[in-house]
Design a protein around this nucleic acid. Structure first.
Lengths: 359, 359
DNA sequence: TTGTGTGCTGAATCATCCC
DNA sequence: TGGGATGATTCAGCACACA
């Protein structure tokens, strides 16, 4: 699979190129690739060490490739690689970039400044994100993808029907619920430590390539890492070009590719979408007015009662907490299902609050 | 409720100001508001006709330079109002902005450039978004909120416990699933047409204000529209200041406010954070006999134990100090919350000493 | 073999009070 | 305002051990 080619004349199809992505892309011919997926450094700017409540240390991203002195330097870097991306992208090609709130706004603005035409921003909702250990923010439970065409007039590819079919015949939305990369898919060294700090799930690349490329298309990944894009491209019969600066990652990616088989035509099946069971929190009933703050709730026998607070807490005297917690305390029970325990009054009758979830 | 005040001296509490938000904010005293919610114009680039923030029409958007001038125009406008926001925001205040992929990346970058410190980006996942009629993109089913502190060192407010309680005792995540504003909540004129094109759901403002403000705080909305922020602020006993350029919207907002009642204390109350509850020193438990000197305390697994001293210290061999210090030393940890680490025996069971604070 | 309990970990801008 | 003391804080999924 590894060949020597004159990059400026011939596209290095199904190759992983070792080197800096801006320099390598400069060697590629213009308007030559159909799709680009980019997972650039996020510029996380982590301060110190973060510990879990049990004092264990969080193994955060602390790589030299993620250190930038300031926003200006990060912006220069962003402009440089996006400019090359736009040059090598075909007129009707599209670009995907993933990021978090640390960098995605700068990347989005740069994309617009360079003339890319934004098609969607896509939210990757994580099934099991890292919690917020200090209770100082909302749990950062998503990352953002931007999907953009090379320009406003691009006649880009979007496999609408494939996306709809894979989503139980409903239009695929801009919010994607996918697990993080874990389990056997996550590459680890002989000590069981993760090989790459930010390996992306193959399911995400699967959906991306299926939605916006055709078989035999050329997919470029300028920050190839351990080769997730290449692996999924190979499996889906797309050509890939990966660029990565770190030899160890390139080696790992080649090993992964060696174990990857291209699907035959019949097997180009679509990953079944995971059905999401909508979970309604009690607080949202108060937020949306289904149950007003100040309402009195009773147990079935009207032996105890509580008042609903504006945050979806309930209180009885000094006692305050969730419907479950307060229900348990008042019964001196270890636990309690507040949804069935608590009732509100309607037309003189007690109705379990559970019915409000179902309407 | 409508009064004439000298804005430069006195905050126009619970007022809706008619006028341009940059000009009006310039008249407000610096460092005076606790929280800002902003729903600025989205700079939608539809049907070829492009409007500047001041509603004037931009001609010809086919040329590259036009696109650039347009973004530049939007950026100038963004910088102008965000600069005033930062000036009137208290040192420890926070700002919320909502937008879509058309404008949110430019706003996010501007926030960072102006020195705001990003705390979260929040995804509003819509329950019933507008489908994509042409089948050329993913259904745009979300909008993005940015939550930012005035600066990196801000000691901002986040009502963590209230958010957790309202989310059935799980940390509130960065993805919020809320219905769009519809039904009786949606303001309509006598012809049944919606009064405002982008009226936001009250549930969203409810969660925002509950998470990041306290009763009596001052909430500013520079693009007040039909007054959703003001209405929810009034209901939750926060002070509001709304600014809006269109007299018809201001009129509608006053009408809404007239029908809005403030919640009473019980209904408005939220689950207090541990940080805000009065602290009880461990020594006082020994003083008042809740825990006798000489009692043996254990960790959860009974791996280590200490004896309570008469001064509220604990000791294990030569080691003596506070419950926190000794707990940390025995675990070789940098720190330890002794309240949850140490347990005493009751009816053969280990109970965290923390429960003694609550009774 | 199957169920249960324990332990580990993930792109993280993760504290506050008091002197 | 700087340093030391205090004390607040986690969810889901997977691996593995053990019954």
């Amino acid at each position: 699979m590894r060949r020597n080619v004159d990059l400026t004349r011939e596209l290095p199809l199904n190759q992983l190129l070792l080197g800096d992505c801006v320099q390598m892309m400069r060697m590629l011919p213009p308007a030559s690739v159909h799709c680009i997926f980019a997972d650039p450094p996020y510029n996380l700017q982590l301060q110190g060490q973060l510990r879990r409540p049990d004092e264990s240390v969080v193994d955060g991203v602390d790589e030299d490739w993620d250190r930038f002195t300031d926003f200006a330097e990060y912006d220069r870097f962003t402009h440089a690689w996006l400019t090359e991306c736009r040059r090598v992208l075909r007129k009707d090609g599209t670009l995907w970039v993933i990021g978090s709130y640390h960098n995605i706004f700068r990347i989005g603005a740069a994309l617009q400044d360079l003339g890319f035409w934004m098609l969607n921003d896509i939210i990757w909702r994580k099934s099991n994100p890292m919690p917020n250990f200090r209770g100082r923010r909302f749990t950062n439970a998503h990352e953002t993808l931007i999907w953009a065409a090379r320009g406003r007039d691009s006649r880009y590819r979007f496999n609408y029907q494939a996306m709809k079919t894979s989503n139980d015949d409903l239009q695929m939305r801009s919010d994607w619920f996918l697990p993080i990369c874990n389990g056997p898919e996550r590459l680890r060294n002989q000590h069981g430590l993760k090989l790459h700090p930010t390996q992306k799930p193959e399911a995400m690349l699967h959906r991306i390539l299926l939605s916006s490329t055709a078989p035999e298309d050329v997919v470029l990944d300028p920050f190839s890492g351990t080769g997730t894009t290449a692996v999924v491209a190979k499996r889906l019969n797309r050509h890939f070009i990966g660029i990565e600066r770190h030899p160890a990652y390139v080696e790992a990616a080649w090993a992964r590719l060696a174990q990857t088989k291209a699907l035959d035509n019949d097997a180009m099946a679509i990953t079944p979408s995971r059905r999401e069971t909508p979970r309604i929190a009690f607080g949202s009933l108060v937020e949306n007015g289904a149950l007003a703050a100040g309402t009195v709730l009773y147990d079935k026998q009207r032996r105890v009662s509580v008042i609903v607070g504006s945050d979806g807490s309930v209180s009885a005297g000094d006692l305050r907490g969730s419907i479950h917690k307060v229900g348990a305390e008042l019964q001196n029970a270890p636990s309690c299902n507040g949804w069935t325990f608590w009732h509100f009054e309607r037309d003189g009758l007690l109705v379990p609050i559970d019915v409000l979830r179902k309407s």
